[in-house]
Nucleic acid binder design. Structure first.
Lengths: 148, 148
DNA sequence: TTAGGTGCAAACCCTTTGCTTTCTA
DNA sequence: TAGAAAGCAAAGGGTTTGCACCTAA
């Protein structure tokens, strides 16, 4: 929250009630929120906030590193708080939609190496593994596995 | 192409001129195509093909494993042929948009392990590393690095 | 001959923008 | 008080769908 305040200040912007609410809701969340979920949660606290404000604020939060957005291939963006968190990647169940976060330092090291080998300087990365979670694997063996 | 024919046959569908053309164009391509590029290329051979057919055929090709689609975070899907190719991941330059493909077996192994540790059975994965390519790094040191 | 497929245009969905009003600094 | 932000609605851009006509099998 202080990070947002600083960012806002530095750029001569204003700290509004809506920005505070959206930031609080997002930072208090611990998994992934899609836009609708965030919108609903924010409106429980402040019933007149519109989608435009959500989007505009999310952009701001992403700029100052408090949020990050992830497209999981289904067209709808999801956001997550970056507060107090390590970088992590995602395991996504293609049957039930479960999203599990994981961190793996060995992979990170290899990614850095790949970058170096190609002359790149890495600024970010994103890794998503799709598959069936333990539950879905057990529940429906003939289940459709689809990654689009 | 035989794969598509088989898929089509198996499902009682038809092998149309348009499907052939789209499959040929895609399979002959070696990098990434966005929908517009594919559309243009297909229409050079068959001027009346519409977007709907492109989308519908791409869905078919993805189902039978001949194509895969990748959202690189900018809202527009890109497709690539899966023919005769290893799985690979992507390095993306955030300044010039250059996309470099790479393969890294060590990372693949670690991904499998992560899956196993979480009880998942992996069906697919996607890894994108964002950064500055050698050229852009040299050209513009103050360049904005943005990953959305 | 008869489903399935195509093309076109309209519909959709998510996101962004324009404009007027409201409110922070 | 000035200029940024909100809220609403309309516009945009990519993708999907409905429907009448066409075509592979």
């Amino acid at each position: 929250m202080e990070v947002l305040a600083a960012h806002v200040l530095r750029r001569g912007l204003r700290m509004t009630r809506q920005r505070k609410t959206i930031a609080e809701v997002l930072l208090a969340t611990d998994g992934h929120l899609n836009i609708d979920q965030l919108y609903q949660a924010v409106r429980q606290r402040d019933p007149n906030v519109g989608y435009a404000t959500i989007y505009r604020t999310l952009k701001l939060l992403t700029e100052c590193g408090l949020a990050s957005n992830a497209h999981f291939g289904d067209g709808a963006a999801r956001f997550e708080s970056m507060m107090h968190r390590h970088h992590h990647d995602h395991l996504i169940c293609t049957a039930c939609g479960l999203i599990v976060e994981f961190e793996n330092d060995d992979i990170e090291v290899l990614q850095e190496r790949v970058c170096r080998d190609h002359g790149f300087v890495m600024s970010a990365h994103k890794m998503e593994i799709y598959g069936l979670c333990a539950r879905c694997r057990g529940a429906a063996t003939g289940q459709r596995e689809h990654v689009d």
